[in-house]
Design a protein around this nucleic acid. Structure first.
Length: 1002
RNA sequence: GCCCAGGUGGUGGAAUUGGUAGACACGCAGGACUUAAAAUCCUGUAACCAUUGCGGUUGUGCGGGUUCAAGUCCCGCCCCGGGUACCA
């Protein structure tokens, strides 16, 4: 009986759904285990084979943990607010909710087909009001909190007010403004990443290379009033707590870099009195410029100070002579888009302000420059420039011809003409009281002097910026804020959820307000106060979803105390590295915040995190020959001039030009050449002339040429590479029939194939995407090979964390394995008929042999080790080895095959259930007990030692493991073969490693 | 530039604390079954040399080193992928 995976898989999926097999309980005597997956955004393209990679791995682990006796929480849901649905809504007018629902239904269908063990009763959708009610509620908690540096945690804003001087005397508006400077969710004028095409602001990590991550539209800097979250308050804890969690080093490193802690000192430079007078600012108190530096030891090497163009002092200190230049520069810097700035990082720009500061130790005058290499948002927006010991200052000084002063003697040969010396090694020179000190000692010393003299103090800066939280978009959570007399106020908990209002269009208003401003005028707090019009970003809902799964239907709280105390946090999270600095940082931030308020008992969302690699697409290409015709001399159309003289030159008339074009369009068949022609052409070993000859020989083009009296214009020939749908290509061989029916215009195509008649496509590994026609959907694989096969194959492909291109070359091997596994349980009773395929299920109750037990227990041991270290690819190999060996032993004993079904169940659950059922069990295999390895079956009495000479293995010799090293040495040396390799010499040394190797050194 | 991960047959990839390099699978070649094909099964398959048989040499990106022994450890370099981008 052949294995009918279609029927079996369908039946068991139905059984699991009907019996709620994977329902997790919030109370259990079993130990808990929480396995979480990446939160999917339900896109219109559906799942491709890359998505399930991590889901399969986590599902294997979840199923394994159930077999190991854990109460497993393994939920799934949807991150269902987001840009793509809204963009689609703008194009089609369809409500994003409808698209989202359709897409979710498709995702669900696809997920179900793969046989995941999700507890679907806990499904969440971030766009559902019963979910975003609590996202809004958390926002309100953030608004009502401030970060107390003394207790080093978030507290209710009420604990702040007594610390504020004369708070009561302020007006309501002033009080509100002041508190906004402390609230963890706050409104402020900030420089934002504004994306005009998307019509919204974006957070830093949503911008890649100066364009939006979604869609790739340009982004510019703009000053806007915006809601932000004060994640910077948590910078230190986000950094330090990384040490305590078992996440991949690369993610932790990415987060460390993103947080970017740097320790240094602030230092004030007084603006020279002469400059203050020159700039005409009289009667004002002394001005000073505060810089931040990590290298205060280089203070005696300062040759200028640079301010960011936006620095507030720029206008005040610029001398009248420099005023025009400076203003021009500021305008230039402002209008330079982010992308431009990034594109020419090497381009050095800046101007002199005409003003000077006084060196705090030498009293000398130091020029003040402005330059856009200094960022307004980092540190103080001003730097002390030490060109001899800082790469950027060096470049700036070189460009503008400013002097450099060497104050550290490098311990190595150094050419200061070519490079600055930035290392923290060497002795200070020309530095007054720092002379002779090593850099590190000098830093300590100078900080103490600076602090003593009150010039500045030790300070820590972070690269991390506050997260901009408002989006000028429709399809997101409404921010639960209204404005009363211009004062932002949050809604009361009872008023939640603040529902997303209906709008007529999903576009900004004519006055440039976000789409929510289109809501009817009744959409007001108490019918009168305007609500906030921006919505929350995509990551709002995903910053706490791991908590909601614990208690998905709670209407009174975001999560109950009991639920969160039981489940704590995620034990295993499997997700992609692309969320390293976005989602994974925000979710840590929210977790710490909720922990500070005492709402949850944990301060990290996930104990262990594993990255799954990306599955790339393998694109296929066809090569189209582009060409045009030439009209032969005697080609004529009555009474129309085809060519005319312009001066002495004969040129084509418009008529001829358009004729040529039309012919190209109407008559020209599409002609495609196979890959070998393309590569020969691009290598230059094949020429336009050769292609032209090919066309004439291999196509009907000659007939067309004759009919219209044309010839091919050889110069016009070129090859165009076109993506072709990988689903009509098999092993790089194009299915010509399918290709012709792929698109209307390809119907009459010609193909110039290889000699054997195959059209070979080109190929390349790229990101899997719809536009590259290289998307492979799991549905097809499931349809053709079954879910178990897809699961095993995706694991078999290689280590989970490695990125690799999708190819199905090896899938037959896995498919064969599943059939072999099935046959192992069906090889007992040969039927009477001649067709040996008709074997029935047969299990023997006989005692297994030693060999059979050894194979089983070896496999149990391997698989257990593999799963524990997430080495799923080697598990699959080990299953194959096991089944091959048991097949060779013709094993059909219950004591072997029953445990084997359990071991394989996490990987191939459908076939395992079916076999388990046939073995006589009425319950699902899900809660069987994972077999333990009995080492006693694995004990060997002897070992086949490789005998090597100088490390080179020559032959093998079996010895009893009871023999001592000395005995083995003696035995080996006595062997005839040994004598042969000794060539009469006496070995210098003989190394015997028990159970490993014998090495004879000559 | 900096940070992270990786480089092993024709291909995907195995290889425990340094201890038989290439498990398992694909592909390929040959064979069996078949009218034929598919499916299935069997045999071989790192390269080179030798070949009647035995066998030998080289080999884990490159160059050095440590060691009885290196894919694995150390030093220097090259290449591919991912992240980051003037963070003072």
């Amino acid at each position: 009986m052949e294995y009918n995976f279609r029927e079996v898989e369908k039946n068991w999926q139905q059984y699991w759904a009907d019996n709620k097999t994977f329902k997790a309980e919030n109370k259990s005597s079993k130990p808990k285990y929480y396995v979480l997956d990446m939160f999917p955004y339900p896109s219109g393209a559906g799942l491709h084979v890359g998505h399930p990679l991590g889901y399969i791995a986590s599902d294997i682990f979840a199923r394994y943990k159930r077999l190991k006796g854990f109460n497993v929480l393994h939920p799934m849901g949807y991150d269902s607010f987001g840009l793509p649905a809204e963009q689609y809504a703008i194009q089609t007018g369809q409500h994003p909710e409808i698209t989202t629902k359709t897409n979710i239904a498709r995702y669900r269908e696809q997920l179900d087909k793969i046989g995941f063990s999700f507890d679907w009763d806990r499904e969440v959708r971030t766009s559902n009001p019963d979910y975003y009610k609590w996202t809004q509620w958390i926002f309100i908690q953030l608004f009502n909190s401030w970060y107390n540096p003394e207790t080093n945690k978030a507290e209710n804003i009420s604990t702040l007010i007594p610390k504020l001087k004369d708070f009561d005397k302020l007006s309501e508006k002033e009080q509100s403004d002041l508190l906004l400077e402390y609230r963890l969710a706050y409104l402020s004028d900030t420089m934002v990443n504004w994306c005009p095409q998307l019509g919204t602001v974006l957070a830093n990590e949503e911008v890649k290379d100066g364009v939006s991550e979604r869609g790739g539209y340009p982004v510019e800097r703009k000053l806007m009033k915006q809601w932000s979250l004060r994640i910077t308050a948590y910078a230190d804890r986000l950094l330090n707590d990384l040490d305590g969690i078992d996440w991949t080093e690369s993610i932790k490193e990415a987060q460390r870099n993103w947080i970017g802690k740097s320790e240094g000192t602030s230092l004030k430079f007084k603006v020279a009195p002469s400059s203050v007078i020159l700039s005409g600012v009289e009667g004002e108190e002394e001005k000073s410029i505060e810089v931040f530096t990590t290298r205060p030891d280089t203070i005696f090497g300062v040759s200028f100070v640079t301010l960011a163009p936006e620095h507030e002092l720029v206008a005040k200190i610029t001398t009248p002579e420099q005023k025009n230049t400076v203003e021009e520069y500021i305008t230039f810097a402002k209008n330079r888009s982010e992308r431009e700035r990034m594109a020419d990082v090497k381009k050095i720009t800046g101007v002199f302000t005409g003003a000077y500061v006084i060196h705090p130790f030498t009293g000398k005058q130091i020029p003040i420059w402005i330059g856009d290499y200094v960022l307004a948002g980092y540190g103080t927006g001003a730097v002390m420039a030490v060109p001899a010991h800082d790469t950027r200052d060096f470049a700036f000084a070189n460009h503008f011809g400013i002097d450099k002063k060497i104050i550290i003697a490098p311990p190595v040969e150094w050419d200061f003409e070519k490079n600055s010396y930035d290392e923290k090694e060497g002795k200070l020179i020309d530095s007054d009281f720092l002379n002779g000190l090593e850099v590190k000692a000098a830093i300590k010393k100078v900080i103490s002097v600076i602090e003593e003299k009150g010039l500045g103090k030790g300070k820590t800066n972070f690269r991390l910026r506050d997260a901009i939280f408002g989006r000028q978009r429709y399809w997101g959570e409404p921010i639960p804020v209204y404005y009363e007399n211009g004062i932002p106020k949050v809604l009361d908990e009872k008023e939640l959820p603040l529902l997303l209002p209906e709008v007529d269009k999903y576009l900004p208003t004519e006055t440039g307000e976000p789409p929510l401003a289109r809501a009817s005028s009744s959409w007001r707090k108490d019918g009168k106060h305007e609500f906030e019009y921006s919505t929350m970003p995509g990551w709002a809902g995903s910053s706490w979803y791991f908590l909601r799964y614990m208690d998905a239907h709670n209407e009174k709280e975001f999560v109950s105390k009991e639920a969160v105390n039981y489940w704590q946090n995620v034990d295993l999270y499997i997700g992609g590295a692309e969320h390293a600095t976005g989602h994974l940082l925000y979710v840590r931030f929210w977790t710490k915040f909720l922990n500070d308020l005492g709402l949850i008992p944990v301060s990290e969302p996930a104990k262990k995190l594993i990255n799954q690699g990306m599955i790339q697409g393998r694109s296929n290409f066809v090569y189209r020959v582009d060409y045009s015709y030439e009209f032969l001399k005697d080609f004529k159309i009555s009474n129309v001039d085809l060519e005319k003289f312009e001066g002495d030159e004969l040129v084509a008339t418009e008529t001829l030009k358009s004729l040529k074009q039309n012919f190209a369009k109407d008559v020209t068949p599409s002609i495609f050449v196979s890959h070998s022609f393309y590569s020969a052409f691009s290598k230059g070993t094949f020429h336009k002339k050769d292609i032209s000859n090919l066309l004439v020989q291999k196509t009907d083009i000659y007939e067309i040429l004759k009919e219209y009296n044309l010839s091919i214009d050889i110069d016009s020939i070129s090859l165009t590479t076109i993506h072709v749908d990988v689903n009509i290509v098999n092993n790089d061989i194009l299915d010509l029939g399918l290709f012709k029916s792929w698109r209307k215009e390809l119907e009459n195509s010609y193909f110039i194939t290889e000699e054997n008649g195959d059209y070979i496509c080109g190929s390349e590994v790229e990101k899997m995407s719809k536009s590259k026609w290289n998307v492979v959907s799991p549905d097809l694989m499931v349809e053709q090979y079954g879910a178990d096969c897809l699961r095993l194959y995706e694991m078999f492909l290689g280590p989970l964390e490695l990125s690799k291109p999708w190819n199905t070359n090896g899938i037959t091997g896995v498919s064969n394995f599943i059939r072999k596994l099935w046959r192992l349980y069906h090889q007992g009773q040969k039927s009477e008929s001649q067709n040996s395929k008709e074997e029935g299920f047969f299990i023997s109750e006989e005692k297994p042999t030693k060999d059979e037990l050894k194979v089983l227990h070896k496999t149990i041991k391997k698989i257990t080790e593999d799963i524990e270290k997430f080495s799923f690819n080697t598990s699959v190999s080990n299953f194959m080895i096991c089944v091959n060996e048991l097949t060779d032993l013709k094993c059909n004993k219950r004591e072997i095959l029953e445990p084997l079904a359990i071991v394989i169940a996490p990987y191939a659950p459908h076939i395992a259930e079916e076999l388990w059922n046939k073995l006589g069990h009425n319950e699902s295999i899900t809660y069987a007990a994972f077999p333990l390895c009995n080492e006693s079956y694995l004990v060997e009495s002897s070992f086949n030692y490789p005998v090597s000479f100088n490390g080179k293995t020559r032959f093998f010799q079996e010895y009893d493991l009871a023999l001592t090293k000395e005995q083995i040495e003696k035995e080996v040396l006595a062997l005839e073969q040994t004598q042969k390799y000794l060539e009469g010499k006496t070995p210098k040394k003989v190394i015997v490693v028990h159970n490993k190797i014998v090495n004879i050194v000559l």
